[in-house]
Each structure stands twice: as structure tokens, then as C-alpha cells.
């Protein structure tokens, strides 16, 4: 059996070739502690570039000391260095490719309104200013008005006349509710209308296509919508 007997076990070939190269671990340990002190003290000066060097420059030095001496990468075969380097290079590639979209808040023909607003809000709060509830997070403020909102959002399925004959609703099964139908009102009360607008059709065993709107509208606004829906009630 032609096995590579010399190359296994605790003291295999991989070790033998760097036997005798062991660094003075104690010295490296105390160097690391010294560097730690420097990195903690660095920000005391309050100068940005000193902090950057003392924090990240020293982190690199420390990591390098640990990797080379404690992990013995200095004496490892080249192949291990290659694939560890490859993984780091890939991360640099990833950050490089993604930062154009994620780090920046505006670019060619686009801007990240929500992020810009979040930055402004946050900086204002940090400066101790009154936090103004920004409307910018909402893409457009068309003002709330129950009939308008019904026409904007609900009418595509329920129809502007509330008859369940909106363009998108024509092909749905089950059909969108017809608010002009007396049978519809026979078994429903206001609490149920509010509940369905808030939590969606699935919450009462009806079509899940009717989603809950609690994320978009306040309870007060949903009440107004329910009021508007009740205006379709025959004889109302």
C-alpha cells in the first residue's frame, strides 16, 4: 500500500517544514495588547484621520499579526494563502459593485428619497432639533379624502359605483363585493366592514386578494372609508 505515511498525524510534513520557525508568542501577545491601547486612546484626540488610522489601521496590523503568527499562515503552503486571499478579494469586489447602489443615495436617473429623508431626520434629531414628522418617506401625498381614496385604491376592483364591477375585478373569483346589493348588507355590519378593510378578506374567510390596509391607512382613515362604503348601501 503506497500511502504517504509521512504526511499525517499531529506532526506531519506540514509541520516539520516550519518547525523551528515558531515566533516568540509572548512578544507578539504584548505587542497586540500595546496596539489595543493605542486604538482605544486614538479617538481621544478627536481628529478624524487619527481615529481612522488608530482604529482601522491598527486593526489591520493586529489581524495580520494574529493570522501570520498565531495561525501560522506565514509558514503555510501557498495554496491556502491563495484561497483565503480569493475570499477577501471577492468581498472587496462585492462591496465595490454594490456600493454604487447602496452607499450612494442618488445616481444616474434615480434617487433614494427614503434614505435621504432618514439621514436628514437623523441628523436633525442628533442636533437636538425638533423632530419634524417627514412626509418624504411616503412617495406622494395626495391628501386623504375617503371618496378620492376609494376611487384610487378600491375602485379598480369594486368599481367607482361600488357595484363590484371594477376593471380588475371582472375576472376575479370570488367576485369583489357588490356594495349596492341588498343581500350583501343582509349579513354584514359595520364592524365587519372595518375589519375587512383593516385585516383583509382572508381574515373572514373571503378572498385573500382583498388585502388588509392597516399598513397604509390609519384607523381613523379606515373609519372614513367604511363611512363611504356605507353610502353605497341601498336606501342609505
Amino acid at each position: 500500500m503506497a500511502e504517504h505515511h509521512d504526511q499525517h498525524g499531529a506532526h506531519g510534513a506540514g509541520h516539520d517544514e516550519h518547525a523551528g520557525h515558531h515566533p516568540n508568542y509572548k512578544k507578539i501577545y504584548f505587542t497586540l495588547l500595546g496596539l489595543l491601547v493605542v486604538s482605544v486612546v486614538g479617538p481621544v484626540f478627536g481628529i478624524v484621520w487619527v481615529t481612522l488610522i488608530s482604529a482601522f489601521g491598527i486593526a489591520l496590523v493586529k489581524a495580520n499579526l494574529v493570522i501570520q503568527n498565531f495561525m501560522h499562515l506565514k509558514w503555510e503552503k501557498r495554496i491556502a494563502k491563495w484561497f483565503l486571499t480569493a475570499s477577501l478579494v471577492l468581498m472587496a469586489l462585492f462591496v465595490g459593485g454594490v456600493s454604487v447602489d447602496v452607499l450612494n443615495h442618488e445616481g444616474n436617473n434615480w434617487e433614494n428619497i427614503a434614505a435621504q429623508a432618514a439621514v436628514e431626520r437623523g441628523l436633525a434629531a442628533a442636533a437636538g432639533e425638533e423632530v419634524v414628522e417627514e412626509e418624504a418617506a411616503e412617495p406622494v401625498d395626495v391628501g386623504f379624502n375617503a371618496p378620492n381614496m376609494f376611487n384610487l385604491v378600491c375602485a379598480s376592483c369594486h368599481g367607482a359605483a361600488g357595484d363590484g364591477k371594477g376593471a380588475a375585478g371582472l375576472a376575479l373569483d370570488p367576485r369583489p363585493a357588490n356594495f349596492t346589493d341588498p343581500a350583501f348588507w343582509a349579513e354584514r355590519d359595520r364592524a365587519r366592514i372595518v375589519n375587512v378593510i383593516t385585516n383583509g378578506g382572508a381574515s373572514v374567510g373571503r378572498s385573500p386578494l382583498m388585502v388588509g390596509w392597516s399598513a397604509s391607512f390609519s384607523a381613523e382613515q379606515i373609519e372614513q372609508l367604511a363611512d363611504y362604503v356605507e353610502t353605497f348601501r341601498p336606501g342609505a
Binding site: 500511502e3 498525524g9 510534513a13 506540514g14 509541520h15 475570499s87
Partner: peptide
């Protein structure tokens, strides 16, 4: 027990494990 690369099998595997950890932490930290 074989070692065609000259790196003992266990250590080789740990290096690969670390390479995969580098990209996991790289994803979060990036």
C-alpha cells in the same frame, strides 16, 4: 490520512471553512 498538497487534511479543511466564514462575515460587515 493522505496529503497530496502537503497540508494535513484536517488543517486544509479548516482553511476552507475559514474561507467560507470570511465571505459570511464579509457579507454582514460589507
Amino acid at each position: 490520512l493522505r496529503s497530496a498538497t502537503g497540508i494535513p487534511t484536517g488543517r486544509l479543511a479548516v482553511w476552507w471553512l475559514l474561507a467560507s466564514e470570511v465571505v459570511i462575515f464579509g457579507g454582514v460587515l460589507g
